[in-house]
Amino acid sequence: MEIDIRKIDEIIERYDKSEESLLAILQDFQHTFRYVPEQGMKRISEVLDIPESKIYGVGTFYKALSLKPVGRHTCKVCTGTACHLKGAHTLTDIIGKELDVEPGETTRDGRFTLQTVNCVGACALAPVVMVDDDDYYEGSSPQDVLKNLRKYK
């Protein structure tokens, strides 16, 4: 994927030039490019004067960061305790079957990345599915969830 270096600099510019900004910059990369590109980490190393090894270490440690591009939408199946008790595992299987991916994978057309996440804090909807940052679906009827997923292009 072609990454615009100006976009990278623009993101780095938003923050103080200190190591403290590292995680936030990487998060913004993830948000903008749907992954953390190598060029971006190299650029941070130059501008913030942090060894690349440390940036890469941070990039591989945090789950919110991905070194491979994720899909246009993320479908997060919550596996919090309440969701687990109410069948999150099965729900993941069913969605995975529909999208033809395993958790952590992206569909071939790049439409969805399926993830399992630790508690999104919406236990009353358990088992709950969260699409992107703000759409939540009650998963007690898996077929309804699949219907909703089809809306995302």
Partner: peptide
């Protein structure tokens, strides 16, 4: 600082950035 600890949990191990030969 040519190497750092990568990943987490059971997968944690030392390595070079991007798993490529390190410039540093």
């Amino acid at each position: 600082s040519a190497i750092s600890m990568l990943d987490r949990g059971r997968d944690k191990s030392p390595g070079t950035p991007y798993l490529k030969p390190s410039q540093a």
